[in-house]
Design a protein around this nucleic acid. Structure first.
Lengths: 197, 197
DNA sequence: CCTTGAACTGAACACCTATTCAGATAAACA
DNA sequence: TGTTTATCTGAATAGGTGTTCAGTTCAAGG
C-alpha cells in the first residue's frame, strides 16, 4: 500500500495539526508520540514528516499560530473612549477568545518549557506584545486618574493571570453563562486597578 | 559493586524526592526518566524502587506532600478581626508560601493531568479544601458588607489564579522586593472584591 | 568477630521512541 | 491515455522506557 485514495495535503496537513493540538492539550507534549498522532489521523508515523520537520516544529507551529491569531484578533478591537471602557473590552475579549480555544490556550501556557531556546524566545516576544496591549490601557488609565496602579507591569501580569484562570474551571453549559462570567471578571479586573464601575 | 559506603535510606530517600521534584519541575513529569532521577542521586535506576512503588507514586507523593503542607500552614494563620484583615493575611501568606517553593508549586499546577484518576481525585479534594479557606473569607466579607462579591466561588478562583500567577514572573533579587509584591497583590485582591484599603 | 539484613548493582525483559527512506500507489496534468 | 509527481507505507536505525530480580557489598546488632 502507499498513497491513500482521496489523499491530499490540504486535508492531511490540517488534520495532523488538529490531532496534535488535541493530544498535546490532553496528555502533554512529552507524553504524546508521533505514532499516536499518526494513528489519530489514520496514517503511518513516517507520513507526518511530509508536513513537519520534527516533533518540536509541530509544537512550535501550533503555539506560534495561536499567538499570532490572538494578536491579530486583539488588534481588531475598536478603540474605546476611556481607559475604563478599554479595560472592560479587553477583559471580555480575553475571556471570550480563550474560552473559544481551550486546547490552544492550554498548550500555549503549559508547553513553554518544551520549546527549544530559540522557539521559546519567539513565543515569549509574541506574548509580551500581547501583554503590552493591556499594559498600555493601564498606563493610560493611570495617567488620566481613572485607575490607581502603583506598578503597571505587575498589574498587567496579575490581571492576565486572573483572566486566563477562567479556562481552568469554566465549562460550557455549567452554572454560569459565559456572558455573566465575562461581566463578573471584567468588573473584578476594573476594581482591582482602582477603577469605578 | 552493590551497597555504597555511607549509604542509608534516611539519606537516599529524601535525595530521590528532591531530585524528582527538581527534574519534574524543570522538564515535566513525562519528559523525565527514572534513569535521569537515579543519575542525579548517583544510583542505578533499580534502586529507586526501594523507595517508591513506581514513577506515578513518586509524582503523587510529591504533590500530596505539598498540598498537605500547604493546608497545615494555612491552618496556623492567626484569626483576624475583620474579613479585610483576613483577606490581606491570606494574600500575603499565599504569595510568600508559593514563592518559597517554586518547584513544588509548579508541579502541583502543571502535572495534574499525569496523575492516575484516583490520585487526581485525592489531590483535587485537597486543593478544594485550600480554596475553601479563601471562599470562607469572601463569604464572611460579603455578609458583613465589607466586600461586594456576586459569586464567591468564582471570586475565589479568580483571586487564587491572580495570586498564584506571581510565581510565573517573580525572581528573587529582581526589580521588586517580595514584601512590595505581597502588598501590591494584597491590595489588588482586596479591591477586586470591592473592599476598601 | 560474625551474622543478619538493608542498600545497591548490573543485566535483562518487553516494549516504545523519533526519524529516515526506498518503494509503491493514486492523483493531476498533458 | 500516458507520464509525472504528490502522497503514503513498511521496514529499518539507533536508541530510550519503566520495571524486575538474582547476586553482591556494606552497616549494624548480638
Amino acid at each position: 500500500m502507499a498513497r491513500k485514495i482521496g489523499s491530499s495535503s490540504d486535508i492531511t496537513g490540517p488534520r495532523i495539526r488538529a490531532a496534535a493540538m488535541q493530544l498535546f492539550a490532553r496528555h502533554g507534549f512529552a507524553a504524546v508520540s508521533m505514532r499516536q498522532i499518526a494513528a489519530d489521523v489514520g496514517v503511518q508515523a513516517g507520513a507526518l514528516y511530509l508536513y513537519t520537520a520534527d516533533k518540536q516544529a509541530l509544537l512550535f507551529d501550533l503555539m506560534q499560530d495561536h499567538m499570532t491569531n490572538l494578536l491579530a484578533a486583539v488588534d481588531t478591537l475598536p478603540l474605546q473612549p476611556t481607559a475604563t471602557a478599554q479595560l472592560d473590552q479587553f477583559a471580555r475579549f480575553h475571556i471570550g477568545y480563550h474560552l473559544d480555544r481551550p486546547e490552544a490556550v492550554f498548550i500555549a501556557y503549559m508547553e513553554l518549557r518544551n520549546l527549544s531556546p530559540d522557539n521559546f524566545a519567539t513565543i515569549e516576544s509574541l506574548r509580551r506584545r500581547y501583554e503590552d496591549h493591556l499594559q498600555t490601557i493601564l498606563t493610560q488609565g493611570a495617567d488620566t486618574g481613572a485607575f490607581t496602579v502603583p506598578d503597571t507591569k505587575m498589574a498587567t501580569l496579575a490581571l492576565i493571570a486572573m483572566l486566563t484562570g477562567v479556562t481552568n474551571w469554566y465549562r460550557e453549559g455549567g452554572r454560569l453563562a459565559r456572558a455573566d462570567v465575562q461581566t463578573l471578571y471584567a468588573d473584578m479586573a476594573l476594581r482591582a486597578v482602582g477603577g469605578r464601575l
